[in-house]
Amino acid sequence: MLADFMTRAVLAGVGVALAAAPLGSFVVWRRMAYFGDATAHAAILGVALSLALQVSIFAGAMAVALVMALTVTVLSGRGYAMDTLLGVLAHSALAFGLVAVSFLSGIRIDLMAYLFGDILAVSRGDLAVIWGGAALVVGLIGWRWSALLTATLNAELAHASGIDPRREQLVLTLALAITVAVAIKVVGVLLIAAMLIIPAAAARPLARTPEQMALTAAVLGSGSAIAGLRAAYVFDTPAGPSIVCVAALVFLATSLLDGLRSGQSR
């Protein structure tokens, strides 16, 4: 029988998976994987700051994630060597965050809970934040869907249709910051990018249109969250990493399926 904390954990996992699916699809299409990583890693600094300033962790993590995402967006527009820059930013943000946490000697803090998530300790209040954030992200992306898709396809094509690609990039940046903030509790900062990318990548071989890919990613991500929690319960493994492991196995399965299919058609 699922205990009540398990029900809340499942709801939290599914909430994050639903927000991560459409956003993750754009992250994959626009090759922003490392960008997602950098934003997520920066959130640990936000956690440290919000503990020190005694504000909500959600707000602190989101603010720092947003600053990081905007910084990267502005710098990428100026033609810096992006993978080097992102490598520098992602890991230094993480390192500064960890160092900042160690200064908080007065507060008892379970660092692991922020690095790998603490989904089994999700409260009703956390659930409200997670589902509220997820609804915001899905609403934002749904509202801009066609414009985002056109801007992803080709910036000039977007301009000619009266769409400003920079504005759409900003929408994604904002959605990313919200997602990072709500996902910390579920999978932790180290594995947020995995929740974004793996279900979307797993959905790719099954989809014929962008919409199908985002919906399939939502189904696969939610399924991974449920199955991963079940596995964590049965095998007594850490919940966040177990969810990501299941998602990775799903990715492997759909990739093999795709390989078989294209092998047959050859």
Partner: peptide, 14 residues
């Protein structure tokens, strides 16, 4: 990584 049918492309962004 972006699946796109001709039909969907023609209806973008429109």
């Amino acid at each position: 990584t972006l699946p796109m049918t001709v039909d969907r492309f023609l209806r973008l962004p429109g």
